[in-house]
Protein backbone atom coordinates (compact mmCIF):
# COMPACT_ATOMS: atom_id res chain seq x y z
CA UNK A 1 0.00 0.00 0.00
CA UNK A 2 2.69 2.43 1.01
CA UNK A 3 4.69 1.63 -2.12
CA UNK A 4 1.68 2.43 -4.29
CA UNK A 5 1.07 5.69 -2.49
CA UNK A 6 4.74 6.63 -2.78
CA UNK A 7 4.70 5.77 -6.49
CA UNK A 8 1.67 8.00 -7.03
CA UNK A 9 3.35 10.86 -5.18
CA UNK A 10 6.53 10.41 -7.22
CA UNK A 11 4.48 10.44 -10.44
CA UNK A 12 2.81 13.70 -9.39
CA UNK A 13 6.24 15.24 -8.71
CA UNK A 14 7.53 14.08 -12.09
CA UNK A 15 4.39 15.41 -13.81
CA UNK A 16 4.72 18.81 -12.12
CA UNK A 17 8.34 19.08 -13.27
CA UNK A 18 7.97 17.47 -16.69
CA UNK A 19 4.87 19.39 -17.78
CA UNK A 20 6.61 22.77 -18.13
CA UNK A 21 9.62 21.11 -19.76
CA UNK A 22 7.41 19.57 -22.43
CA UNK A 23 4.55 22.03 -22.85
CA UNK A 24 5.96 25.32 -21.51
CA UNK A 25 9.34 25.49 -23.22
CA UNK A 26 9.70 29.16 -22.25
CA UNK A 27 9.90 28.03 -18.60
CA UNK A 28 13.32 26.60 -19.37
CA UNK A 29 14.67 29.55 -21.34
CA UNK A 30 12.89 32.34 -19.44
CA UNK A 31 14.77 33.97 -16.57
CA UNK A 32 14.10 32.39 -13.19
CA UNK A 33 12.20 34.25 -10.50
CA UNK A 34 15.55 34.89 -8.79
CA UNK A 35 16.65 36.73 -11.96
CA UNK A 36 13.36 38.52 -12.65
CA UNK A 37 13.33 40.25 -9.24
CA UNK A 38 16.78 41.86 -9.68
CA UNK A 39 15.93 42.76 -13.30
CA UNK A 40 12.91 44.72 -12.10
CA UNK A 41 14.98 46.40 -9.38
CA UNK A 42 17.59 47.48 -11.97
CA UNK A 43 14.78 48.85 -14.16
CA UNK A 44 13.89 51.26 -11.34
CA UNK A 45 17.33 52.87 -11.68
CA UNK A 46 18.82 51.24 -8.59
CA UNK A 47 22.55 50.54 -8.74
CA UNK A 48 23.79 47.67 -6.53
CA UNK A 49 26.27 49.03 -4.00
CA UNK A 50 28.29 45.84 -3.72
CA UNK A 51 28.95 42.96 -6.10
CA UNK A 52 29.66 39.26 -5.53
CA UNK A 53 33.29 38.45 -4.71
CA UNK A 54 33.27 35.70 -7.31
CA UNK A 55 30.80 34.66 -9.98
CA UNK A 56 30.96 31.43 -11.99
CA UNK A 57 32.56 32.32 -15.36
CA UNK A 58 29.90 30.53 -17.36
CA UNK A 59 26.51 28.91 -16.98
CA UNK A 60 27.99 25.41 -17.33
CA UNK A 61 30.18 25.91 -14.28
CA UNK A 62 27.26 27.39 -12.37
CA UNK A 63 25.11 24.36 -13.25
CA UNK A 64 27.99 22.10 -12.24
CA UNK A 65 28.29 23.79 -8.85
CA UNK A 66 24.57 23.42 -8.25
CA UNK A 67 24.85 19.76 -9.24
CA UNK A 68 27.76 19.38 -6.81
CA UNK A 69 25.65 20.91 -4.06
CA UNK A 70 22.79 18.52 -4.80
CA UNK A 71 25.19 15.58 -4.94
CA UNK A 72 26.72 16.47 -1.56
CA UNK A 73 23.28 16.66 0.02
CA UNK A 74 22.14 13.45 -1.63
CA UNK A 75 25.34 11.71 -0.49
CA UNK A 76 24.70 12.68 3.14
CA UNK A 77 21.06 11.62 3.01
CA UNK A 78 21.87 8.37 1.20
CA UNK A 79 24.62 7.50 3.69
CA UNK A 80 22.41 8.07 6.74
CA UNK A 81 19.37 6.35 5.23
CA UNK A 82 21.61 3.42 4.30
CA UNK A 83 22.82 3.04 7.88
CA UNK A 84 19.29 3.35 9.28
CA UNK A 85 17.99 0.84 6.77
CA UNK A 86 20.70 -1.67 7.70
CA UNK A 87 20.00 -1.12 11.41
CA UNK A 88 16.27 -1.64 10.89
CA UNK A 89 16.92 -4.89 9.05
CA UNK A 90 19.26 -6.11 11.80
CA UNK A 91 16.69 -5.26 14.46
CA UNK A 92 14.04 -7.12 12.54
CA UNK A 93 16.34 -10.12 12.13
CA UNK A 94 17.09 -10.21 15.85
CA UNK A 95 13.39 -9.95 16.66
CA UNK A 96 12.58 -12.85 14.34
CA UNK A 97 15.37 -14.94 15.96
CA UNK A 98 13.95 -14.29 19.42
CA UNK A 99 10.51 -15.45 18.28
Amino acid sequence: MVERRTTIMLLIIIALIAYPLIFESKAVSAPSSDDQGPAWILSTGYIPWVHPIWTPPNSDMEAGLFALQAALGAGIMGYIFGIWHAQARMRKKEESKEV
Partner: peptide, 26 residues
Protein backbone atom coordinates in the same frame (compact mmCIF):
# COMPACT_ATOMS: atom_id res chain seq x y z
CA UNK B 1 22.07 12.05 11.80
CA UNK B 2 18.45 13.27 11.68
CA UNK B 3 19.68 16.83 11.94
CA UNK B 4 22.13 16.12 9.11
CA UNK B 5 19.31 14.66 7.00
CA UNK B 6 17.21 17.79 7.49
CA UNK B 7 20.17 20.03 6.61
CA UNK B 8 21.04 17.91 3.58
CA UNK B 9 17.42 18.04 2.43
CA UNK B 10 17.50 21.86 2.46
CA UNK B 11 20.90 21.73 0.77
CA UNK B 12 19.54 19.59 -2.06
CA UNK B 13 16.24 21.39 -2.45
CA UNK B 14 17.77 24.86 -2.62
CA UNK B 15 20.16 23.72 -5.35
CA UNK B 16 17.44 22.55 -7.73
CA UNK B 17 16.19 24.96 -10.35
CA UNK B 18 12.78 23.65 -11.22
CA UNK B 19 10.70 24.91 -14.16
CA UNK B 20 7.20 25.98 -13.22
CA UNK B 21 3.97 25.69 -15.16
CA UNK B 22 3.73 29.48 -14.84
CA UNK B 23 6.46 29.85 -17.47
CA UNK B 24 9.40 30.64 -15.24
CA UNK B 25 11.59 28.65 -12.89
CA UNK B 26 12.53 28.74 -9.25
Amino acid sequence: PLLAVCGAFIFIMSSLHVPSVTGSSS
